[in-house]
Lab assay of single mutants.
Amino acid sequence: MATGGRRGAAAAPLLVAVAALLLGAAGHLYPGEVCPGMDIRNNLTRLHELENCSVIEGHLQILLMFKTRPEDFRDLSFPKLIMITDYLLLFRVYGLESLKDLFPNLTVIRGSRLFFNYALVIFEMVHLKELGLYNLMNITRGSVRIEKNNELCYLATIDWSRILDSVEDNYIVLNKDDNEECGDICPGTAKGKTNCPATVINGQFVERCWTHSHCQKVCPTICKSHGCTAEGLCCHSECLGNCSQPDDPTKCVACRNFYLDGRCVETCPPPYYHFQDWRCVNFSFCQDLHHKCKNSRRQGCHQYVIHNNKCIPECPSGYTMNSSNLLCTPCLGPCPKVCHLLEGEKTIDSVTSAQELRGCTVINGSLIINIRGGNNLAAELEANLGLIEEISGYLKIRRSYALVSLSFFRKLRLIRGETLEIGNYSFYALDNQNLRQLWDWSKHNLTITQGKLFFHYNPKLCLSEIHKMEEVSGTKGRQERNDIALKTNGDQASCENELLKFSYIRTSFDKI
């Protein structure tokens, strides 16, 4: 039985969820670079991206490699990797027998973001014989899940209580170790020597080791999670996991709180800001991140802002960003909400898709409305799209047979046209069989910064309504002859009103 693990408890099935942008060198404390989270699957090609990484700022997932063999891993080693800020997950990587050479110096898994409450997941690794993470000293947050690894031993010899604050939620089941077939031998045991430290858990006094050649490092209890030197002297209180010299914040392997210019500090002093819960960055760093993602459509890219001495992905609820200094300031009234469309555009074809934009005031991208039916549609669209004030790209209304009016965009005031449909149009209306009105132009103002209007096959939309939009939106004169079809717009509506004058002759039985 794995020490510190839980057996036999019912657990939810383990679901495996399925960018080499360097964020800056980590400095003297770390020998390499800070790398983003990685999802490495199918083959070993991307694994080489770990070569210079000291910190993975995010998670590391290595999974679904069915053609790899043990010899493929023999020359692979990433000794610079010290810390993973989120979680480490391995799933069905064939041929991998140990992690001792792959990650010989991995010391800390912070667990800032977890995989279903777990910071370390080893699942269905069919050839893994031992973990071998002999320098792993601290899992700051989260638990361990090690399950269905039929060859995995050296679990009962690990004292997880020396690595985690609590072992109650560890789930370590259905491994070879369960069948008591392992016969784990710690260093020196074969020669009758006791080389590794022994600890007591559940009444068992057991030597602690990761492999037959690597003991588990056990520091004096007084050192807590700070770690200790090879001689057993406690590291500085700002260290986490390990250090090369005692009581020196510049000799830590990793930091308990924050890293700044080669030393570990309790908090980031001005003019620095907390970033990702582990390091200090200056304003320029946060500003660069903001600008890199301002026009990016890459998933996970955030326009970072500053709030409460932190550089964070977005302002919290009730705050909006001051564009001059990136500071989050309290909103006066309802907060603006910028919604970034991942692929640059979004099609609204149902109430469900409209709900995804609920509360958005600025759309960074283009909207395509293609709704053919739905219950209580006008009210639903207004509830979900009615706060949109600005669209950076274009607005396209296409084959939306259920629409009679666009009044559900009740606050839309600006279409920038930074991206144009077919390279020309910022407003595009095609084949809307029941569209009769755009907006009530006596109450609604709309500016279209650039781009043209396109109207074709809107049989109940009168040309007068379209011409009014040209005047109000500032697009009059931009359109070419064929942009607004004269014969297919309003051709099934009563669009022309003329005053009919009647004269009559009164007659009676005795007068003409």
Score class of each variant (00 low, 15 high):
Leu96Ala: 02
Asp159Met: 04
Pro187His: 04
Phe78Arg: 02
Thr329Met: 11
Phe116Val: 02
Pro79Trp: 13
Asn150Arg: 15
Cys264Ala: 00
His127Leu: 05
Phe258Glu: 02
Thr199Asn: 10
Ser324Gln: 05
Phe78Val: 04
Asn242Met: 08
Cys196Arg: 14
Asp177Thr: 12
Glu147Gly: 09
His214Ser: 14
Ser323Lys: 06
Gly192Arg: 10
Ser161Thr: 14
Thr329Ser: 09
Glu57Asn: 10
Val200Leu: 04
Asn242Arg: 09
Cys223Phe: 03
Thr189Pro: 10
His59Ser: 08
Val55Leu: 02
Asn135Thr: 10
Lys100Ala: 08
Pro36Gln: 15
Ser296His: 10
His212Asp: 15
Ser143Leu: 09
Val200Ile: 10
Glu238Ile: 01
Leu332Glu: 06
Glu151Ile: 06
Glu97Ala: 09
His214Gly: 15
Tyr30Leu: 14
Gly95Met: 03
Glu168Phe: 08
Asn175Tyr: 05
Leu164Trp: 03
Asp261Phe: 01
His48Pro: 06
Arg256Cys: 02
Asp165Gly: 12
Glu97Ile: 10
Ser237Phe: 12
Pro36Leu: 08
Asn138Ala: 12
Leu131Val: 07
Asn202Asp: 10
Cys215His: 00
Leu63Pro: 00
Glu130Leu: 04
Gly183Ile: 05
Phe115Met: 04
Cys209Gln: 02
Lys310Ala: 10
Ser166Met: 15
Cys255Trp: 00
Cys228Glu: 02
His226Asn: 08
Asn322Arg: 06
Tyr171Pro: 05
Glu168Ser: 15
Leu47Pro: 03
Cys234Trp: 01
Cys228Lys: 03
Pro270Ala: 03
Pro316Asp: 05
His59Cys: 13
Asp184Asn: 09
Ser244Gln: 13
Leu81Tyr: 00
Glu168Met: 06
Ser161Pro: 03
Gly262Pro: 01
Asp39Pro: 00
Gly203Ala: 11
Asn175Trp: 13
Ser317Leu: 07
Gly58Gln: 00
Glu231Ser: 06
Ile306Arg: 02
Val173Pro: 09
Arg145Leu: 11
Gly227Glu: 03
Lys251Gly: 15
His212Trp: 08
Ile201Pro: 14
Cys223Gln: 04
Arg256Gln: 11
Asp261Glu: 01
Leu60Pro: 00
Val173Met: 07
Arg279Trp: 04
Cys255Thr: 00
Gln299Leu: 07
Asp75Asn: 14
Leu50Asp: 00
Asn179Leu: 06
Arg141Pro: 01
Thr189Asp: 04
Arg256Ala: 10
Trp278Arg: 01
Phe275His: 08
Gly142Val: 01
Met65Arg: 02
Arg145Gly: 03
Lys67Ser: 06
Phe123Ala: 02
Met38Val: 04
Leu240Gly: 08
Lys224Leu: 10
Asp248Glu: 05
Ile158Cys: 04
Ser77His: 03
Asn175Met: 06
Gly188Met: 15
Thr45Lys: 11
Asp288Pro: 01
Asn42Ser: 10
Trp210Ile: 14
Asn170Leu: 08
Arg263Ser: 00
Glu151Trp: 07
His212Pro: 14
Pro271Gln: 03
Glu180Asn: 05
Thr189Trp: 08
Asp101Gly: 07
Ala156Trp: 06
Asn42Cys: 08
Tyr319Gln: 09
Leu136Met: 02
Asp247Thr: 03
Thr329Pro: 02
His212Ala: 14
Asn202Gln: 14
Arg145Asp: 03
Cys293Pro: 02
His214Leu: 11
Met125Leu: 04
Lys100Ser: 14
Ile84Ala: 00
Cys252Asp: 00
Gln204His: 13
Ser284Met: 13
Cys215Lys: 11
Pro220Val: 04
Lys80Phe: 04
Ser225Tyr: 09
Arg74Trp: 05
Cys215Leu: 08
Leu174Ser: 14
Leu164Asp: 15
Leu233Ser: 12
Lys310Arg: 09
Cys268Gly: 00
Leu60Met: 06
Val218Lys: 14
Cys228Asp: 05
Gln216Asn: 03
Pro330Arg: 11
Asp184Glu: 05
Cys223Val: 01
Leu81Phe: 01
Lys67Asn: 06
Leu89Asn: 01
Cys228Val: 09
Tyr118Val: 02
Asp248Gln: 05
Asn149Arg: 01
Arg145Ser: 10
Asn295Trp: 05
Asn105Gln: 08
Gly188Phe: 11
Gly37Asp: 11
Thr140Trp: 04
Leu60Tyr: 00
Ser213Leu: 11
Asn195Met: 11
Asp178Tyr: 13
Asp75Lys: 05
Tyr304Ser: 03
Met321Arg: 11
Asp169Thr: 11
Ile158Glu: 04
Glu238Gly: 07
Ile84Ser: 00
Glu168Ile: 05
Arg256Phe: 06
Cys223Met: 02
Phe78Ile: 12
Ala156Met: 08
His226Pro: 03
Asn202Met: 12
Phe205His: 09
Lys191Gln: 05
Asn282Ile: 12
Ser213Cys: 12
Ile158Tyr: 07
Gly227Ala: 07
Arg41Thr: 12
Gln245Ile: 10
Met38Leu: 07
Asn135Trp: 02
Gly32Lys: 05
Phe275Arg: 01
Leu99Gln: 00
Thr45His: 07
Val108Leu: 13
Gly241Val: 04
Pro220Arg: 03
Tyr259Cys: 14
Val108Pro: 00
Gly111Trp: 01
Lys176Pro: 09
Ile84Arg: 00
Gly300Arg: 11
Gly232Ile: 06
His214Ile: 08
Cys223Gly: 02
Gly333Tyr: 08
Met125Thr: 05
Lys129Asn: 04
Phe116Gln: 07
Tyr94Leu: 11
Thr85Glu: 03
Cys255Glu: 00
Cys239His: 00
Leu155Asp: 05
Gly203His: 11
Asp261Trp: 00
Leu260His: 03
Asn135Phe: 02
Pro269Met: 11
Ile185Gly: 14
Glu51Ile: 10
Lys176Asp: 15
Gly232Arg: 03
Asp177Cys: 08
Ile62Ser: 00
Ser225His: 10
Val34Lys: 10
Cys186Asn: 02
His48Ser: 08
Ile84Gln: 00
Glu124Arg: 07
Glu238Ser: 08
Phe78Ser: 02
Asp184Ile: 05
Val144Leu: 07
Asn135Gly: 13
His214Thr: 10
Asn282Cys: 02
Gly188Tyr: 09
Asp178Cys: 09
Leu106Pro: 01
Ile306Met: 04
Glu181Arg: 04
Gln299Gly: 06
Gly232Phe: 03
Ile56Thr: 01
Asn150Thr: 07
Cys243Lys: 00
Trp278His: 10
Asn42His: 08
Cys186Leu: 07
Asn105Val: 04
Leu29Val: 07
Met38Asp: 04
Lys191Met: 09
Ser161Val: 08
Gln276Gly: 11
Leu44Cys: 03
Gln204Leu: 08
Phe258Leu: 06
Thr45Val: 12
Pro249Asn: 03
Ser225Pro: 12
Leu164Ala: 10
Met83Trp: 02
Met321Gln: 14
Leu128Trp: 01
Ser317Arg: 00
Ser225Arg: 10
Gly183Lys: 10
Asp248Lys: 03
Asn135Asp: 07
Ile172Phe: 05
Pro330Met: 03
Asn257Gly: 05
Arg298Tyr: 10
Asp165Glu: 14
Asn195Ser: 10
Asn170Gln: 06
Asn325Leu: 05
Tyr30Cys: 13
Arg110Trp: 02
Cys264Asp: 00
Arg110Thr: 04
Thr189Lys: 04
Leu99Gly: 02
